[in-house]
Design a protein around this nucleic acid. Structure first.
Length: 754
DNA sequence: GCCGAAG
DNA sequence: CTTCGGCAACGCAAG
DNA sequence: CTTGCG
């Protein structure tokens, strides 16, 4: 269970507050004489902290029961809880001494226990915090405390605790809902991080070259004045938008300098450094000063053209963005000067320095994660079935209203729906109730709204036009999305207006719309979110009513969510690449597939590219699906480096190359499905093609919601037959490792982590 | 850990 | 929504 | 030397 970033001190009762310990988060698992101290990545730290393992073992033996304790390993300084820096020396060390116990040089450490997941055979995970805490306090009695294991502090007074955090330089405070269950391996809003943050101005003394894929520069080299010396304070590369990188770079390029402006030896950087005359001042938010005077977790906030660089000193009491305590409005940290110049955030116009604490809170909580956040439990759950599902009935516990079999729809219903939509749009004021047979109805509205502005030689297309397209193509589309969770990208006001993604089902859905709880990631059942499941006409038309333009199905179906039944190679041309080049790359992909005995179906993406889809035999693991796409994509890119690339970052790809994207085969990512309309001018459609249609004059823009129904009438459904031949990857993976070898080898390299 | 880019 | 990748920092270990 | 970890 991980804490979300809290925008402010939560109000009302039902919360308890604990210090945010600055150490290593572990789950201590003790059973019999066996003890594991599992870090977030699932690594056992008991070799590094034997005294803690011993203390946990002793406790489990004394109480004669298995235990799972959640806590933080914290370094001790003069008997008081220290900082992460105090632990750094022993995080990785195999054994601290010959007898397996820490010697005098190693900093002592303790496990601060703050939660109890299981107590003997009682599973406490689903109990409220209050109950878990009661068990924990009974387990770790204060009169029996040992140095290596102690009970975490908790208090009902959040304001006082935050004040203490500020005084004692903790990282912050964690607020926990007392009625909330423990959510294994998940970031949860039942736990909120209230951080003590610092910010101040710094002088820019240089910058580093960017690494791959990054525009303009990597990081700013920062300093502050001590007397006449400019003292290096570390660098800062986070917090820039691309626009800000460009703007700052242009300022820096104008003031180059031969030698480092910093006092003493020039700072050593990983990438090459460029020096500038120290006159540019920036505002930076950061977590803390490290022992050697560098910034920890620095974030760029903006330029401070109003500040004289000579006046920039290290502030002993950096003005901190305080969280809003009840009755105490947040302190404007820009009080020392005018606001920093920075682009207006998306939502509202407000200078970053004026209200820094809200940055990254309200709209960024969900993105607060990293590889190191993947908890031990996440890892260990990776092999367990994760698609636990439970049908939800819209009301009561009665059987779900079925509007036909999934993937099927009758001709009569389709033509009836098209006629009704036509009438509602043109005679009924754009709003009305669709009857879809078998007693199923669906309210639709705003059918006259223009969703697609007119393209040359065409007319504007309305929401009603989109509705009618989907109704008429439903007999071919529905089988391809049957039983698949759908990701929505909603354009409530047409494709020229802002859109947003939605995975969880929005609010109460109309009767007949299929919703099931599907685990978002790898977590246990408790993490399952209600999602829309494709297959019937009501659900399809409902997502159109919500403003979805495309239909984006998962690659796996409920019931077998771990095993996708196809894998996709997405050919995506750069801004200056012609479609002709996409066609060439598609041909090379076809050659590559042929040479490996693989069979694939072809469709336009509906946008500017092509999709090559490989059907897979049932039971193909996710990893294998992704790997085969990667192997083929990498092989093509290596054979035709001037035309094709597998570089993910948009900026690092040549503008005239075709991106061979194998990374769409990931949970949570989707690709517009076959027969899906796209949010593109002219309402283009992802259209199945025969490989023989891959001619030089192929024009993907010709396939639109106006033309595709007629094409399908004429040629029939090309997709179902093309998807019938399924590839068995077991044979391919064998031949790859034995024969050709992996093109680059990096497919097996571990992923980067934080 | 932080953030922005991207689908 | 979700994932990816670039950025910080630092001492240590593994390849 | 680079890379991964926390």
């Amino acid at each position: 269970m991980l804490a979300a970033v809290g925008p402010a001190m939560p109000r009302g009762s039902g919360w308890t507050f604990e210090p945010k310990y600055d150490g290593i988060r572990v789950l201590a698992v003790a059973s019999g004489r066996d003890v594991l101290l599992l870090s977030r990545n699932g690594n056992d730290k008991s070799a590094q902290f034997p005294e803690i393992a011993d203390a946990v073992r002793a406790l489990a033996i004394r109480r004669a029961r298995p235990l799972v304790i959640d806590g933080e390993i914290v370094g001790l300084r003069q008997g008081r809880l220290g900082r992460f820096q105090d632990l750094q020396g022993r995080i990785h060390r195999r054994a601290t001494t010959h007898d397996g116990h820490p010697d005098e040089d190693t900093t002592p450490a303790t496990l601060v226990a703050f939660d109890l997941l299981t107590d003997d055979d009682v599973v406490l995970v689903h109990e409220p915090w209050t109950t878990r805490r009661r068990h924990l306090e009974a387990l770790i009695r204060t009169d029996e405390q040992v140095p290596a294991l102690r009970l975490g502090e908790t208090s009902a007074d959040g304001t006082a605790m935050l004040a203490a955090a500020r005084r004692q330089q903790w990282e912050g405070v964690i607020a926990k809902r007392t009625d909330a269950a423990y959510e294994m391996g998940q970031r949860s809003h039942a736990w909120l991080k209230l951080k003590v943050e610092h910010e101040q101005e710094f002088v820019v003394g240089g910058y580093t070259d960017p690494r791959r894929g990054r525009p303009f520069f990597g990081a700013l080299l920062l300093g502050h004045y001590v007397g006449t010396d400019l003292v290096y304070a570390g660098s800062c590369g986070g917090g820039f938008t691309d626009d800000e990188l460009r703007a700052v770079f242009h300022r820096l390029r104008a003031i180059p300098r031969q030698h480092a402006p910093f006092a003493g030896a020039p700072p050593r950087t990983r990438e090459r450094a460029h020096w500038v005359t120290p006159q540019l001042v920036v505002q930076v938010r950061f977590n803390e000063w490290t022992a050697d005077g560098k910034l920890r977790q620095p974030i760029y906030l903006g330029l401070r053209d109003d500040v004289d660089p000579r006046q920039v000193h290290r502030e002993t009491e950096s003005i901190q963005p305080t969280v809003a305590a009840p009755g105490a409005p947040s302190l404007p940290s820009g009080a020392t000067g005018p606001p920093v110049t920075r682009r207006a955030p998306r939502t509202e116009s407000r200078p970053a320095a004026a209200r820094p604490s809200d940055r990254g809170a309200s709209d960024r909580g969900a993105s607060d994660r990293g590889a190191s956040d993947r908890s031990a439990s996440n890892r260990s759950d990776a092999r367990t079935p994760r698609g636990v599902r439970r049908p939800i009935s819209p009301r009561g516990d009665g059987p779900r209203l079925m509007c036909g079999k999934p993937g099927r729809v009758s001709r009569a219903v389709v033509s009836g729906a098209v006629d009704q939509l036509d009438w509602i749009e043109h005679e009924g004021g754009g709003e009305g109730m669709l009857a879809l047979g078998a007693g199923c109805t669906l309210a639709v509205s705003r059918l006259g709204k223009v969703f697609f502005p007119a393209v040359p030689g065409g007319r504007p297309l309305t929401k009603g036009d989109l509705f009618r397209y989907y109704a008429s193509i439903a007999p071919y589309l529905l089988p391809t999305i049957a039983d698949r969770p759908l990701v929505l990208r909603r354009f409530p006001n047409g494709i020229t207006r802002p859109a947003f993604y939605q995975q969880r089902v929005p609010g109460p859905a109309p009767r007949g719309v299929r919703i099931e709880r599907v685990a978002a990631g790898k977590g246990p059942e408790s993490t399952a979110e209600p999602r829309l499941i494709g297959g019937d006409l009501v659900t399809l038309l409902y997502i159109v009513q919500l403003g979805a333009v495309s239909v984006d199905p998962w690659h796996a179906r409920v019931g077998s969510l771990d095993t996708p039944d196809y894998t996709i190679i997405d050919l995506d041309p750069g801004p200056r690449a012609t479609f002709r080049r996409v066609i060439d790359v598609a041909r090379w992909v076809k050659e590559e597939l042929d040479s490996r005995g693989l069979v694939a179906a072809l469709k336009t993406s509906g946008a500017t590219g092509l999709h090559v889809v490989l059907p897979l035999v049932s039971g193909t693991p996710e990893d294998a699906a992704r790997l085969v796409a990667e192997i083929v994509a990498t092989a093509v890119a290596e054979r035709h480096p001037r035309d094709a690339t597998v570089t993910r970052s948009v900026r690092a790809r040549g503008a005239a190359t075709v991106y061979v994207d194998y990374l769409q085969n990931i949970r949570g990512k989707t690709v517009a499905g076959v027969y899906s309309a796209r949010a593109r001018p002219g309402a283009t459609v992802s259209t199945p093609l025969d490989w023989a249609e891959l001619r030089d004059d192929l024009d993907p823009a010709a396939f639109t919601i106006e033309t595709v129904p007629e094409r399908v009438q004429r040629l029939g459904d090309l997709w179902a037959p093309a998807m019938r031949h399924r590839n068995d990857l077991a044979t391919l993976v064998d031949s790859t490792s034995a024969g050709h070898g992996h093109p680059s080898g990096h497919a097996h390299s571990p992923r980067r982590s934080a």
